[in-house]
Nucleic acid binder design. Structure first.
Lengths: 239, 239
DNA sequence: GGAACGCTTCGGCCATGGACGAAGCGTCGG
DNA sequence: CCGACGCTTCGTCCATGGCCGAAGCGTTCC
């Protein structure tokens, strides 16, 4: 007379178990940057040998968490869908929200806290500062758990060369918020968030740090973010 | 020369591994209903023996996923925080979004699809219908990934006897959206979502089905939802 | 006070699955 | 065409951890 539980619980368990292995979590974490990586690079990130990594990648791909693309003798793996990144962030939120455990800051973490990519958009102090400024300027309205782009906001973004399809329909949300795990406040995701990241990279306002999700703000970036969004160094200072 | 990965990946793995066990996933799923359950009830949901369940509960509590409260000779367990439920929903979204796997509907699933609780708010066709109607009536504005309550909405809710603190600050979001895994469209969560569920239960518009997250709509509920929100039987019909 | 109950702890069994070395494919470079 | 390279498959080892029965502790009921 044992249980007959809700069927979907097993589906959750399957996915969670997949993420629950340290090597696989490292792989997924590395891919949260949004760029596709080769099996070799992921092997390095995973911290295990090549055969083991290959097995993990096969499982993740089989489960639909990763997508793979062959290119020459390399195989490029990437997250199969943004919802995967979202789930990872949710788990990260649980991990940091838990009991007041010691969370070692570390030097590399400081870089991550300052500015990093979160799948395909900006996070960290830079990400939250952008969200704050856009909100202050009434270009987006950040509500509880979500965000809307105002007409002013559309005009402003068009001025930056960023245009978007109309809201609604089945395509990707124009703008949504994403809880920043280091700042504990929202930053902007969705099409808008992705466009801001792309735009910042194209203008060389930020540069990716190799082997990390962290990004550095260039001199041009300091000027650019200040000029366009009014972001001051104080916004980006730790604490 | 093995890896030096991002520290937080291990934190994710720990949490995910915890959720990744079928018995524990069942326990967490059962608690998604928002009410606290005794170890014995959870034992039934978990589908394993009492000693095993006790071990799982200890692990989950130790990790900060569950909170426990002793009451007489019973111990009531509940999710330690809403972010846990959010993470579970994210994982569910990944599970259903994945490859077009067969997902067996089943009779009990139909009840879940019709109306169920999602942690502390309503989901399923009833949940999405409520969200739709509130949106149609311009009481809330459902944007991409988020929701805002309008002034009209506040007045309307006040008329139902529901009042909320001002937005902003550190307290819980007034209203946010939550992706409905069965309808693939948003329903309303946050304080507003919780209040709607409580209100519906108090008025006996809905009744919990024992041992399940599903709820049934009472006769009074059919009238009430139609009268107050304009929800018709068509809104609640399958497909 | 004693028995029933709810839950946890202890001890031991066993399967799952993650790890690596060696070998097997495909691709690129000279 | 051969060797180096990138990645995967195969086979094997081994530890982690889930599971249960028995026993222990605290609470409630009669």
């Amino acid at each position: 007379m044992t249980a007959r539980p809700i069927a979907s619980a097993n589906a959750i368990a399957t996915i969670a178990a997949l993420i629950g292995d340290p090597a696989r979590a490292n792989i997924l974490s590395a891919l949260m940057g949004g760029q596709a990586l080769t099996a070799g690079e992921l092997c390095w990130h995973a911290g295990v040998g090549a055969p083991t990594t290959s097995g993990h990648l096969a499982k993740l791909t089989e489960a639909g968490l990763l997508a793979v693309e062959r290119q020459g003798r390399h195989r490029y793996y990437r997250l199969a869908s943004p919802v995967i990144a979202q789930a990872m962030e949710s788990l990260m939120a649980v991990a940091t929200a838990g009991p007041p455990r010691h969370r070692p800051p570390g030097p590399k973490d400081e870089a991550l806290r300052a500015a990093r990519t979160c799948y395909d958009h900006l996070a960290g102090r830079l990400g939250t500062a952008l969200a704050d400024r856009l909100s202050d300027l009434r270009l987006v309205i950040i509500g509880d758990g979500g965000a809307l782009v105002t007409d002013d906001g559309r005009d402003f973004l068009a001025g930056l060369g960023l245009t978007f399809p109309e809201a609604g329909g089945n395509h990707r949300p124009l703008c949504r918020t994403c809880l920043d795990w280091s700042e504990r406040r929202p930053h902007l995701a969705g099409q808008l968030g992705a466009a801001l990241l792309t735009c910042s990279l194209e203008r060389s306002w930020i540069a990716r740090m190799p082997g990390s999700r962290a990004v550095t703000i260039t001199d041009a970036g300091s000027k650019g973010f200040a000029m366009v969004f009014g972001i001051t160094p104080e916004h980006l200072a730790p604490k």
